[in-house]
Amino acid sequence: MLTYSFKRLVQLFVTVLGVVTLVFFTMRLIPGDPISAMAGDNLSGAALDQMRGQMGLNDPLPVQYLTYLGRLAVLDFGTTVTTKLPIVGLILGALPVTVSIALGTIFLTVLISIPLGTLAAYMAHKGNRMLDNIITGVAMVLDLMPPFWTSLVCLLIFSLTLGWFPASGTVSLDDPAMLLRRIALPVLVLSMAQIATLARITRTSVLEVLNEDYVRTARSMGWSELHVLFRHALKNAALPIVTVIGLSFGNLLNGTVIVEFIFTLPGIGNLLVGGMNSRDYQMVQTLIVFYAMIFVAINFTTDLIYRVFDPRVQF
């Protein structure tokens, strides 16, 4: 376990370094820089140049890169270009919204797709493929709908036409009811993309387990179908399901950026979009480091959860 944690730590370090390097250079490939984005057409070339010099943007790229790494090493993530606010503070402020959306989506997805997939597997095991076909069909349709499009459609139907959910409004942790109403649609949109996938994975792995010898053993000891399904089959089928949930977290980070933008929610996805638009190198880089760390943390947690479901997994 210790060796394993150590390996993971090394992996975190390498991942972050790689991501940082990649983002650092690609950001600078994009035309424009923070100063020109901020100034627009108002300031003269000389004035801009002076500001760039103050920020160290006139140094050669390798020097800028090393300076950045040096600051990173002492956990100095810097401030925003425009407002000069500490970036870490901004991220921590925006985090609750994004975490609420992500966890809400996972919760809704698991709640619907695992029972649905298990039921489909059980029916298929008994030779009834109806539910199976329905899930596969729905999954195909949902997979083909990109979240930015479903977001707009949902907004149109549920907020603008039916008026069930507010399309805008302040969001904070102090007002959970409002938060819930504001994130309901984003959660729904993101879940739609995940439910079908997870239900299909659940269905496949449970169906495979139902054909295993130990399931027959449990039946031969007089256990009912329900007992067999939930006590034996689901636990054995858990590994692929946990893997897919872990992976879908990755997709979610992607998805939250889109839905936060469309539903104007002040999460870290919106920070990222804002940072990109204002060419705020520091902001984007810090956010990407943050995302990378979340990714590694999720992988780590997924592995730990494996151990809970399968004692054969050794670290």
Partner: peptide
């Protein structure tokens, strides 16, 4: 009626 199956490697639930 008790039942004993062929393959002991797969006849017991591996995660229990």
């Amino acid at each position: 009626v008790g039942t004993i199956f062929q393959d002991p490697m797969s006849s017991l639930d591996p995660v229990m």
